[in-house]
Design a protein around this nucleic acid. Structure first.
Lengths: 131, 131
DNA sequence: ATCGACGGTATCCATTTTGATACTATATGC
DNA sequence: GCATATAGTATCAAAATGGATACCGTCGAT
């Protein structure tokens, strides 16, 4: 219910980019998808531990939005310490090339200083076909 | 200035994805980059016309952020009706594979209803190498 | 003299997003 | 009985984002 992006854009010829971005919106969706792609099924607190800076509320929200978008599945096991598994749906898995492209660009061009992030041209190294 | 994303993330092993996303953040950066990639140098109002839904303030803001990030260059011509050219920097151009991946996924998986956007699995069609 | 185009700024306001904190329920371990 | 773990929800407040509107200065056209 909150998709400010692409929602009121009446300009859709050039919009698939923005449309895709709207699914990755929010502060944590990228990381969540990344972990789910890398590690497969994860429980709520497993994700939390992998993303220390996220709060419970935020993680819940982002997961719900991913679920609503059909990218992530949520499986509740009716066991006694509650247990909920999160996994990518087939649709979610199709995002792999996108996440890979993001990750590749990030790892080649983004330098992480102490508390800031900046993009730089990589030294003339050839881009290996990093799958 | 304002980079809530990735700013306070002390978890950087798995973060290139999020780092990249932080550069595409904001409602219009994706479209701006898309147009600049497609059409090369554009003036302020040329961009505006290509993105009817953006306000002057927002376009300015997003362009400034892209400039600050080193992805876009801003050239002021000291002529009499002011003239400002925006173009991708070499660094900005390296985002092409990313934008392409986003565009490809968007065009294959995102269906645009009247006023909402949803992702779907494409019917088993093979992915043509849509450059 | 006024209007419009250009490329913005400044101001104000509404919405959205995020964070902090406290709270829930059940079961196990102590 | 109390703490812990699980997977959250509720509430409040702050911050960030975005939109509307008005304004700036200069030039050419009317």
């Amino acid at each position: 219910m909150s998709r400010p992006r692409a929602k009121l854009i009446d300009y859709f010829p050039g919009c698939p980019v923005e449309a895709t971005l709207s699914f990755l919106d929010g502060k944590w969706k990228g990381v969540i998808l990344h972990h789910l792609l890398e590690e497969g099924t994860l429980r709520f607190n497993e994700l939390r531990r992998r993303i220390p800076a996220v709060t419970q509320r935020m993680l819940t929200k982002q997961l719900r939005e991913l679920e609503e978008a059909g990218l992530v599945s949520r499986t509740v096991h009716a066991v006694v310490p509650p247990r909920v598994d999160y996994d990518l749906t087939p649709l979610g898995k199709t995002l792999e090339p996108v996440i890979s492209a993001l990750r590749l660009w990030g790892s080649e061009h983004v330098m992480c200083g102490d508390d800031q992030v900046s993009a730089v041209m990589p030294p003339q190294q050839k881009v290996r076909s990093a799958a």
